Simulated scan of single mutants.
Amino acid sequence: MRIGRSMAAAGLMLAMTTSFAQAQEASTPPAPAEAAAPVEAPAVVPAAPAWTLKNTRKVYKQKWRFVNLFLSSCEYGVYGYGDQLVGGRAERVEKRLRDHFGDRLNGHEVVLERYEFFQNAQINLIRSVGQGQGGLIGGLMGTTYNLNCKRKDTKSGWYDTQRFKPDPAPYVVEITVKIDGQVIASSAAAQPVRPHTFKEEELADPDIAEVIEAVQVVAMDDVIARIDAILPKPAPAAAPTPAPEAASAS
């Protein structure tokens, strides 16, 4: 009887020990898994920054000004129009460049250095001065004017006297843009349909405003063509893949 009880107690102890060991094994946290090797991210090539127009042009406070007061100067009689009379110049350049080139200018330095609007009344003014002088000197002034002024001698407002009559005084637009330091300079001339004053209401008349607009368009067209010649050409568009022909049912 004692042996039986001892064996039963031993069996009970063995069962308890086994259960305790199993419980310990179950409660032991699993060994940590080995960390996976880091995956290298693919190299990312930064996109070229979108371009901005840097405006460094000089802006005059006057509505209009005499470019040069010296009678012997090739700029005598040239009037500069202020932004109050012909405005939106930088905005015009930026819009035309964006409309034409889009992202072709991305990553390039684009600087507007000069945008001038002139009316060259040199011949008319010299004639009137000559008539006021009278005599031989006045006669010479009134007939010879400054037709000998060449483009290289005229810093502002030059136009070809063989193409345009002096009256009404022609408009001249001069634009200078730099692309990555390379100078792009252009000018254009046009003639208003009638003489007028520098009053805003006269310049806003449709017949005058149309010519003011047109001469600026011509000058910007030339700027765009010159920039187009120095920029890398865009990659040709890939030809579309033809769709597979559907097999006909037999």
Score class of each variant (00 low, 15 high):
F198E: 05
T17I: 13
I224F: 08
A41S: 11
I227Y: 04
I208N: 04
D180N: 12
G139W: 09
G80C: 01
V177M: 08
V173G: 01
A8M: 10
V110M: 06
A229R: 14
V177F: 09
C149Q: 10
D83Q: 05
W158R: 09
I3M: 05
V193F: 00
V111E: 06
A229I: 08
S156R: 15
A235C: 08
L14I: 12
M7K: 13
G130W: 13
T154S: 06
A169H: 08
G134M: 06
E200G: 03
A9N: 07
Y79D: 14
A43L: 15
R2I: 12
P46Q: 13
R226V: 02
A235M: 10
A21L: 14
A37V: 15
A219M: 08
D180M: 05
G107Y: 07
P195S: 07
E94D: 15
A185D: 05
N124E: 14
V215G: 01
I179G: 02
P192E: 05
E201T: 11
A41E: 12
P242S: 03
Q22M: 10
N148R: 04
M1N: 08
C149D: 14
A190D: 09
V215R: 03
M1V: 12
A43R: 15
P192I: 10
T176M: 03
A47M: 12
P168I: 05
S128C: 01
H196G: 03
P46W: 10
H108S: 06
